[in-house]
C-alpha cells in the first residue's frame, strides 16, 4: 500500500495541535497548580457536544434556512443541509464555528469553575479525581441517552471544519494552520502565565495550599479560576477535535482520552508548557504510527488488531516515565519573574 505522506503529516500535525491544547490545559491545572483533573474527557466532550448542537440548530438559522430535525427519518436531509451550507456559505460556516468556540468555552469554563467549588466539600484529595472522572461518564451517558441533543448513539456527522468549502488538501492545510495558531496562542498564554506573579501563586498553592492561605491567598478562588481557564482550553480543543473528525460521537470522550492527556503531560514534563507540547507531539506521532502499522498488518494478512497495542504502549510509557523520570523529558525549569534579573543586575552593579 502507498502511504500518502503529506496527508499523514497533515493529520499528525492537526492531532498534535488539538492534543497540545488538552495537554496545555492539564499542564496548567495539574502541572502548575496541582489540581488533579481526571475529567479531561468531560471538558473536551463539552466542546464536542456543543459543536453537535450548534451545527444542527444554529447553522441553519444563520444561513436563513429551515431547521431540519437532525435525527431519525430526516437525518439524510439534515446532513445534506449542513454540507450545503458549509460548502456554499463560508461566512456562515465561520460565524457558526466562531460562536461554537465561544459557547463551548464559556459553558465548559463555568462547569469547571462550579466543580472546583463543589469539591471543596470533599473529604480526601483524590476524591476530586474520582468525581471528575465520574462526572464525565454521567454527562456522556445522558447525552447518549437523550436523543434530541446529538441523536443519542448515532451522533452527528457532517460537522465539517469551516475551511471545507476550499475542498481537498488546501482545506486540511488551512484548518491545520488554524489549529496550530490556536494552540500557539494557548501555549504562549500558559508560558507567560507561569512566569508571572500568578504563576508564583499557583506554584505556592501546589506546594502548600494551607500556608498560601495563611499568607492571605484565596486558594479556593484561585483554583476555581484555574479550572475555568483549563476547562475553556479543553472545550476549545473539543470543538476542534469534533470538526476535524467531522462527527460528534459520545464514544470518543471516554476515560482513555483523559488518560492519553495524562500520558502526554507526564511524558513531556509536569509544569513545563514546552513539555506539554512535546508530549502531545510524541503521542500524536505514536498514535498515527500504530494506526498505520495496524492497517499495514491487516493488509499483510495478519489477523491481529494492532490498535490494541497502542493502549499497551501508552500505559507502559506512562509507567516507565513515572518510575524512572517522574519530572518528564523536559523538567520544569525554575521559573522566576523578571524581578530576579533586575535585582541581579542591580546588586552586581553596586
Amino acid at each position: 500500500m502507498n502511504i500518502d505522506y503529506v496527508a499523514t503529516t497533515i493529520a499528525v500535525l492537526t492531532f498534535f495541535g488539538i492534543w497540545s491544547l488538552m495537554a496545555i490545559s492539564l499542564n496548567i491545572e495539574y502541572g502548575v497548580a496541582g489540581i488533579p483533573n481526571f475529567g479531561k474527557a468531560l471538558f473536551v466532550s463539552i466542546g464536542a457536544y456543543t459543536t453537535g448542537v450548534t451545527y444542527t440548530r444554529l447553522l441553519p438559522i444563520l444561513a436563513g434556512r429551515d431547521f431540519i430535525h437532525p435525527c431519525g427519518s430526516t437525518l439524510a436531509d439534515a446532513i445534506q443541509l449542513r454540507s450545503d451550507i458549509i460548502r456554499t456559505m463560508p461566512v456562515v460556516a465561520f460565524v457558526n464555528f466562531g460562536i461554537t468556540l465561544v459557547i463551548a468555552a464559556v459553558i465548559s469554563g463555568i462547569i469547571g469553575f462550579a466543580f472546583s467549588y463543589l469539591v471543596l466539600r470533599l473529604k480526601e484529595e483524590w476524591f476530586l479525581a474520582l468525581v471528575l472522572l465520574v462526572g464525565g461518564e454521567i454527562v456522556r451517558i445522558f447525552v447518549r441517552g437523550y436523543q434530541p441533543l446529538i441523536c443519542a448513539n448515532n451522533g452527528i456527522s457532517a460537522v465539517s471544519q469551516p475551511f471545507a468549502f476550499m475542498g481537498g488538501r488546501s482545506a486540511s492545510i488551512a484548518f491545520l494552520m488554524l489549529v496550530l495558531l490556536i494552540a500557539f496562542i494557548a501555549y504562549v498564554y500558559s508560558e507567560r502565565l507561569i512566569r508571572s506573579p500568578y504563576g508564583r501563586l499557583l506554584k505556592a498553592i501546589r506546594e502548600n495550599e494551607d500556608i498560601a492561605r495563611t499568607l492571605g491567598k484565596d486558594v479556593a478562588k484561585t483554583k476555581a479560576q484555574v479550572m475555568f481557564i483549563g476547562s475553556m482550553i479543553a472545550a476549545i480543543s473539543g470543538v476542534l477535535f469534533a470538526v476535524n473528525l467531522g462527527f460528534v460521537n459520545t464514544n470518543d470522550y471516554v476515560v482513555t482520552l483523559t488518560l492519553d492527556v495524562w500520558v502526554m503531560v507526564v511524558l513531556g514534563g509536569l509544569g513545563n508548557p514546552k513539555g506539554a507540547l512535546l508530549g502531545a507531539f510524541v503521542i500524536a506521532v505514536l498514535d498515527r504510527l500504530t494506526a498505520i502499522a495496524a492497517i499495514q498488518m491487516n493488509m499483510a494478512g495478519f489477523n491481529l488488531e494492532f490498535n490494541f497495542v497502542r493502549f499497551i504502549l501508552f500505559a507502559v510509557i506512562l509507567l516507565l516515565m513515572m518510575r524512572y523520570r517522574p519530572q518528564g523529558i523536559l523538567p520544569e525549569p525554575n521559573y522566576t519573574t523578571e524581578a530576579h534579573d533586575n535585582l541581579t543586575a542591580r546588586t552586581t552593579g553596586d
Binding site: 495539574y30 479525581a129 506512562l318
Partner: peptide, 18 residues
C-alpha cells in the same frame, strides 16, 4: 496518590488490552 491512581489505570489498561 495521583501517581498511584494513574499507575493503577495503566496496569489495568495493559491487562485489558493484552
Amino acid at each position: 496518590i495521583y501517581i498511584m491512581l494513574l499507575a493503577s489505570f495503566a496496569v489495568g489498561l495493559i491487562i485489558r488490552y493484552v
